[in-house]
């Protein structure tokens, strides 16, 4: 089971990213989400399902309505994962600076 790969698949779709950005601002019902897109409700519902399956979205029942909200922990996990590759390069650039300084001395 590789949930990270699933997360990347989930966010590889522009509509799903748009849904995430919408929900990041505030919890929404499935109807409200679908109302913001030109696609069919069925299509949007499928996108929401994928986002929920990979835990980027969480469901919350409020009275008779279901609200979707963002799961900040999961989003952070994804950005932390990317951050380690950036840090790797930052470290290399630091090494390069040192090398260039020692080249000068030679």
């Amino acid at each position: 089971m590789n949930f990270r790969r699933d997360v990347f698949q989930a966010i590889s779709d522009p509509t799903r990213r748009a849904i995430l950005s919408l929900i990041a601002v505030g919890a929404m019902t499935p109807n409200a989400i679908a109302g913001r897109f030109n696609s069919s409700r069925q299509t949007i519902s499928k996108h929401i399902q994928i986002l929920t399956e990979c835990e980027l979205l969480k469901q919350e029942q409020s009275g008779r309505e279901i609200y979707y909200h963002l799961n900040p922990e999961k989003v952070k996990e994804v950005s932390d994962w990317a951050e380690q590759f950036r840090e790797l390069w930052e470290g290399r650039l630091h090494h390069m600076d040192k090398i260039l300084k020692s080249m000068k001395k030679d």
Binding site: F8, I11, S12, R17, L20, S21, A24, L70, V75, V78
Partner: peptide, 21 residues
């Protein structure tokens, strides 16, 4: 292929996530 990460950054989603949280 999953360069969507930078897309996340562009959207300022992290910031939004903070707000959402």
């Amino acid at each position: 292929h999953f360069g969507q990460m930078s897309h996340f950054a562009q959207l300022g989603l992290e910031q939004s996530v903070g707000k959402a949280a």
